[in-house]
Design a protein around this nucleic acid. Structure first.
Lengths: 154, 154
DNA sequence: TTTGTTGCAAAACGTTTGCAGCCTC
DNA sequence: GAGGCTGCAAACGTTTTGCAACAAA
């Protein structure tokens, strides 16, 4: 029940952002926001575009355009990890977390750690005003470790 | 005096890495390592290539190839920040640090914080073996803040 | 009516790859 | 001499752009 309401609230935030920045409230933009809301975890522009195409006529250019606006509105977060393509993530509904990135398969998992979060958030700087942060731990996930061990022992 | 010696040590580490991994010790690879050693702070592949071109005949492909090897040898670190291109950084001669990234001008500054470092390094996971990490704090640097304030007060 | 937004396709960008010749080993 | 490495240029995949038609304001 709460889910339904909170997405309505997100749409409202988006609408307000569009009005304030003199952007138009096009159906494509709301359709994309809605699709993003249905995603769990990370996604990329291509995944989003292909998922839209199934039941909604929209161009890749519009997808990128809308992602840019959602980024400005701080409704999504952008990650630049592998190098090949950017990954995105909802910034609503999930609290601050950190990322485990497998350097073998590229998969990203989230975790929370209060001690780390507090250590970072309490740090201030004389000549820098922090707005947000990203923490990535790189390594090997258990699934890949198993695979690598097996291939070595053959 | 220490500088000279330590770079000789770096070259030796590189040589050992090349031998161990059955790579050839080509003059291009050493020339690139030497140029990287002369850099202060972050650099990218294009900057490195253009800097080499001035006095050394080398192709962009070789630059990328060598960066890949140096990455494997853990002599450099790769950052994916803006999205457009990758940035690199020497991993020798400077200890672990974190990054302040200005979202206005894109400049990157380093800082160290023992409390943050310890909090991250002591965290372990049941299904993930951490090898290294990256922490980026995004915000506005004092120079940009001044500029933005001025333009608002006009 | 104005002008921001759309879809489409072509272009741009950093990076990777294929290949013939070269040079370590 | 064998095969890894080089330079060159073409190819790659993601993202951006130019443009005419469209539709929100």
């Amino acid at each position: 029940m709460k889910e339904e309401n909170s997405f309505e609230a997100i749409k409202e935030i988006f609408t307000e952002f569009l009005i304030k920045n003199h952007h138009r409230k096009t159906p494509e933009r709301y359709a994309i926001l809605e699709r993003i809301n249905s995603f769990i975890g990370h996604f990329n522009a291509d995944l989003l575009y292909n998922s839209m195409k199934v039941d909604y006529r929209v161009s890749l250019a519009t997808v990128y355009n809308t992602l840019e606006i959602l980024l400005d509105a701080k409704l999504i977060i952008k990650h630049q990890l592998g190098g090949q393509f950017a990954q995105y993530e909802k910034a609503f509904g999930n609290n601050t977390h950190h990322h485990l990135v497998c350097t073998n398969c590229g998969k990203v998992k989230d975790f929370s750690d209060k001690q780390i979060r507090v250590a970072i958030q309490t740090r201030t700087f004389a000549h820098f005003e922090t707005s947000h942060y990203s923490l990535y731990l790189f390594g090997i996930c258990s699934k890949c470790k198993e695979l690598l061990n097996n291939s070595e022992n053959k």
